[in-house]
Amino acid sequence: MASIFTKIVNGEIPSYKIAEDDNFYAFLDINPNALGHTLCIPKKEVDKLFDLDEETYAGLMAFSRKVAIAMERAIDCQRVGVAVVGLEVPHVHIHLIPLNSMKEMTFQHKVNLSPEEFEKVAEKIREFL
């Protein structure tokens, strides 16, 4: 059965897309730790980060870097934090989280946004790609 992220890539579930290429997809986390919290995924469905082949792993890191640089320009933050947890969805994903304090990395601190706010943030990040 396809993961929720595969369904997002296939357009079966909507997302606030940030960036996409032939192999990777970035979109806003709908339960964000901070404004601009973004997920970067390979389009190929693989459960664990270190099960990716070397080329896909390196490509995901390069894609995530590009997105993180745009996020730092678009979002008022001290830096963009990176987390790979992987327990909540069986599809490799990198969390890119704009940080101004450590609480934003705890996954216990969440912010609520309206659909309009999500779209505004996504557009602002896309402007810097």
Rank of each mutant, 00 (worst) to 15 (best):
K66N: 15
T106C: 01
H91Y: 15
E54C: 06
N23P: 00
I4H: 04
V67A: 00
K103A: 08
N33C: 12
L60D: 02
A26K: 15
M71H: 02
L129C: 05
K124S: 14
I8W: 09
G36P: 06
L49I: 07
N33E: 15
H95Q: 08
N100F: 00
T38I: 01
A122F: 11
A26M: 10
A34L: 13
S114N: 05
Q78H: 12
T106F: 02
A83K: 14
L129E: 11
N23G: 08
V111M: 08
D29R: 14
E54H: 15
D51N: 10
V92L: 08
L49P: 13
F63R: 00
H93Q: 05
V46R: 07
F50L: 12
Q108I: 10
V121P: 09
A58V: 14
E45M: 04
L99M: 15
F118M: 11
I94P: 00
Y57V: 02
V82T: 13
P42K: 05
Y25N: 03
V46T: 08
E119D: 07
K44H: 04
N23R: 03
A74L: 06
E54Q: 11
R65W: 00
E88D: 08
A34C: 08
F5E: 08
Q108Y: 08
I41S: 12
F63E: 14
A68E: 12
M102H: 10
D51R: 05
R73S: 07
D53K: 10
D53Q: 13
D22S: 13
S15T: 10
R79C: 06
K110M: 01
L39T: 04
A122V: 02
K103C: 02
N33Q: 15
P98S: 11
E127G: 04
A58M: 03
N23F: 05
Y25R: 02
P14Q: 10
E119H: 05
H109C: 04
E12Y: 13
E45V: 02
T38Y: 01
E119Y: 03
L113A: 02
K124W: 00
P90H: 04
A68N: 14
G11C: 14
A34G: 13
M1W: 02
K44W: 00
E20W: 11
L113F: 11
N23I: 00
I97Y: 11
I41K: 08
S3K: 05
E117C: 10
A62S: 07
I4S: 10
L60W: 03
E127T: 05
E72A: 10
E116Y: 05
L99S: 06
M102F: 05
L129K: 05
I69R: 12
R126D: 06
I97M: 04
D53F: 11
L35N: 12
V89Y: 09
I125Q: 15
H93G: 07
E123G: 07
A2I: 01
P98A: 07
K44M: 06
E117D: 08
F118Q: 12
M71L: 05
L60A: 11
L113Y: 14
K124H: 08
L96R: 15
P32M: 09
T6K: 15
E20K: 05
D22F: 01
A58N: 11
R73E: 15
K120W: 00
D47S: 09
M71P: 01
F63L: 02
V67L: 00
A74P: 13
E117Y: 13
R126Y: 06
S15F: 09
I18V: 12
L113T: 03
G81D: 02
R65G: 09
I30N: 14
F27P: 07
E116Q: 08
